[in-house]
């Protein structure tokens, strides 16, 4: 379980997060939506300790990550996979080497075993047989898929997705949404997703958090949020429908 307790964050004079509190349950897909620049990525990076809150605390499975030292953080990160906004693949390595990278760094599996896992994960994300390609040869959607394969290579308990569908054409975005749903069904782990795409959010989310004006204005089960009569939410969703 991931928990935010009264998290504040500013950059200089810019207040980005204001008293955010919520608990993200295990084994569900939780989606944070909000206009771009509202602080979704910052909120997500706090889970892996890449950003620290100014005040408040962030907990992952009973560990307070904002107070951990490097070694502790690395222990927590071992059970988390993260898909970055445009994949963050290492350019100097092929697709296969990228996916194998966490395996080589953290396990002592033999090369044959690693190759097997790599092709299995690539097949799982719908990119079978492109082990030998270079990141620069891939389209945006393909890079995200490879990034996802890398994120799940170590079979993490938690997978974080930073805007998995942004910058993609609608068809590709739908395909990625389907992939997320399918993977969650197969892997049964905790997914946290950032998005500014409202229809996609309603399709994949179990829980939805709405970030607006640096506050978490709503957080709850999908149906609950969808049915809400709150004026702000209705305005927000109707204005942002459609991609």
């Amino acid at each position: 379980m991931i928990e935010y307790k009264n998290v504040d964050k500013s950059f200089g004079d810019l207040r980005v997060l204001d008293h955010i509190s919520c608990a993200i349950p295990e084994g569900k897909i939780t989606v944070f939506v909000g206009p771009s620049g509202v602080g979704k990525s910052v909120l997500m990076k706090m889970i892996v300790g890449l950003e620290k809150p100014d005040a408040g605390s962030v907990w992952v499975d009973g560990d307070e990550v904002n107070r951990m030292d490097e070694r502790g953080l690395y222990r927590v990160r071992r059970k988390i996979g993260m898909l970055f906004q445009d994949g963050a693949l290492l350019d100097s390595m092929t697709v296969a080497e990228n996916v194998a990278f966490p395996l080589r760094q953290h396990t002592s599996k033999r090369e044959k075993e690693i190759a097997r896992i790599v092709s299995e994960k690539l097949a799982l994300v719908g990119m079978p047989g492109c082990e030998g390609k270079w990141p620069s040869e891939l389209s945006g959607g393909m890079r995200k898929r490879v990034g996802l394969a890398r994120a799940i290579a170590l079979e993490p308990e938690i997978v974080l997705f930073d805007e998995p569908t942004s910058g993609l054409d609608p068809l590709m975005a739908d395909a990625i949404d389907d992939l997320i749903l399918e993977m969650q069904r197969k892997l049964r782990c905790t997914f946290v997703v950032n998005s500014h795409d409202i229809p996609g959010t309603f399709r994949i989310a179990d829980l939805i958090g709405v970030l607006y004006d640096s506050r978490l204005v709503a957080y709850g089960e999908r149906e609950e949020i969808q049915r809400s009569r709150d004026q702000l939410l209705i305005r927000f969703f109707s204005r942002h429908t459609g991609r």
Binding site: V48, L50, L73, R75, R77, F84, D86, L90, Q105
Partner: peptide, 25 residues
Amino acid sequence: ATIATMRVKGQIDALEVMAVNPYRY
């Protein structure tokens, strides 16, 4: 240039998330 490119493209963050220390790697 290599390290700056990795920083700019978020690959150093990616290393950290994969629990690989960038100093060491």
